[in-house]
Design a protein around this nucleic acid. Structure first.
Length: 119
RNA sequence: UUAGACUAUCGGCCAAUCGCCCGUGCCUUACAAGGCACGGGAGGAAAGUCCGGGCAACGUAGGGAAUGACAGUUGCUAACGGCAACCAGAGGUAACUCUAGGGAAAGUGCCACAGAAACAAUACCGCCCUCACGCCUCUGCAAGAGGCUAGUGCUAGGAAAAGUCUGAGAAAUUCGAAGGAGACGUAUUUGAAUACGUCGACUGAAUCUCGCAAGGCUUUGACGUAGCAAUAGCCCUACAAUCUGGCGCAGCAAGCUUUGCUUGCUGGCUGAGAUUGGGUGCAGGGGUGUGAGGGUAAGGGUGAAAAGAGUGGGGUAAGAGCCCACAACAGAUCAUGGUGACAUGAUCAGUAGGUAAACCCUGUCUGUUGCAAGGAGGUCUGUCUUCAAAGGUUUCCCGCCGAAGUCAGACCGUAAAAGCCGCUUGAUCCAUUGAGUAAUUGAUGGACUAGAUAGAUGAUUGGCUCCCGCACCUUUUGCUGAUUUAAUCCUUUUUUACAAAGUUUAAAAAUAAGUCAUCAAAAGGUGCGGGAACAAAACCCGGCUUAUAGAUAGUCUGACAAA
RNA sequence: GCAGGGAUAGUGAAGCGGUCAAACACGGCUGACUGUAAAUCAGCUCCCAUCGGGUUCGGGGGUUCAAAUCCCUCUCCCUGCA
């Protein structure tokens, strides 16, 4: 889990991102990002009830994604302050191999930083 | 040992690295914030949201009804639709389990199809009785002074109605009454017998509970029964068979008294008598069919269910709780036991279809909204609308209130479902102990044990434990096959016994021990792979329901075996 | 957090205790008509089978003689309020 200052707070704070964000898709995941108004990045992971009925499974998917993003940003200091949301589409992420998941997250975050920086 | 029943507990552990939330302390900093250290951080169901409460708000929050929920009894509880113990019923060999378990005798509705009839109704088949008609059969009688049919007239009969009398009652029931083998008593009598009285098996479609019915007289008299009279029409007026007779006509045969006579046989004629059959009519008996009127609910059939108390006996025309005996069921009263549901026994009067998870009736409870509650939308001014027959009270009535609402403006406040409080010390948990069969509860001591809010308690790697699968190895046991040895058996040497041999050919088994191989089972070990249930707080609590791999412990029951 | 509605043939959708394998419409298949196709007409359209039988109305359990229908429970879908 990431700390409080990297999370979104309040129900309306995601509306701007949902309206103006751009998406990058990989297998069973999609990243939506836009430049934020703070220096620190913010991240939300969306796992709908359609992915799995069980709250245990949804929590496990969310925590694995949070952890891999946290590890990536810790290894790359100076990451731009983006607002990001990750939507999950199926429950294969529950038992996906850890290295493969890290590879996908790296791909997503690198592309997002590149496109945001070019603008 | 095995198959179960019930209850309780647990429901992965360890390490490393990197993280998250809360609290406390210290440091940095003007604050916000940051850093470090220490401590704490999901469940038995946190779930479903099916009930009940706490808490909070709504002060027009009072009463009643409705709605909704529940339903054996007693108890427990803050409360409950929950729990405990017991009662009744059902299931199980048993331990034990299950039950929306008030009322169908308050009323309404429904019970499809089938069936006669689906709930005080009805009669399809069947059984029984009466009447009318037809047929069959039996018996008796009759036959010209005949029979049948049709209508007419007269006489008799007569359903029913009205009136009246008797009678407790003339119509709905009730009381009784008729015949009667015989018995007893009294009187007469030698006795038998007779008379009177009482009892009386039995009979009885008058007799009684129904079926089913107590009459007499008078008047009217449907109907068309019986008789008589005449009329018209029709039928018959003597049939068949057999037997006993009579005639002596014809033929044949035999005898002698020979143109003949006698006897016998066959044919013919006659029709006196008898018998049998058949026909007609009348009367009576029996059987059967059809129709009408009635009785019955035992039996058949239909259906999930058939009038709802079964078996046996009596009873009857046939039958029936119609009666009796025993058994069954529910009710009332009484007695005993129990706080009670209820149980047991006695008496009385009874026997009523099912369905209330159909409406309904009875009893009990029930104000509304929900932590996104609430703290926290207030004050003032103006305008307009409605209004004691109005409006409000979140379904209605009574009652109650005296105002309620719209719009505009000003001030403070608010805003991104912002942040804070509510918020975790509570019907709390643990231990010991008292009361109680138990649910539960009293006392003492101890503990503080999540508080997030796009939502924390994790991710990765490694190890351990457990389970499953596969492969290999070891041990044990067992089956099968091959082989060796031993003895027996078998074969050959003409037969038998002994002895010898069994190399080839032919025939032919089993036992014991050993070795090898294959297979199976069990145990152990090694390696590899896979798996480790159901599932995560969202104000709190008590329950219920549903999901749940497995592990452990205890009590009890059945079966088998051994001692 | 609270409340309401629904699940029926391939699809949509009636039926709400009884003669119900279940109306109706659309689709699908076969046949007729036509040189061909469309339209139209007839039949079939859960399974075995072609007489008939069996299983059924989201899953499970119960009430009833009888359940798609009534009651309880579970699963899924949809909607509303704050």
């Amino acid at each position: 889990m990431i700390s409080l200052k990297h999370r979104f707070h309040g129900h309306g704070s995601l509306n701007y991102l949902m309206k103006h964000g751009k998406t990058i898709k990989v297998q069973s995941m999609a990243l939506r990002y836009c430049p934020g108004k703070y220096d620190e990045y913010r991240l939300a992971v969306v796992v709908s009830k359609k992915v799995s009925k069980s709250a245990v499974v949804r929590n496990r998917i969310r925590r694995r994604i949070f952890e891999s993003v946290r590890l990536y940003i810790k290894a790359h200091p100076g990451y731009p302050g983006l607002d990001m949301s990750l939507s999950v589409y199926d429950d294969t992420l529950t038992n996906r191999d850890w290295l493969e998941l890290e590879k996908q997250i790296t791909y997503l975050l690198q592309n997002a930083a590149k496109h945001a920086g070019s603008k």
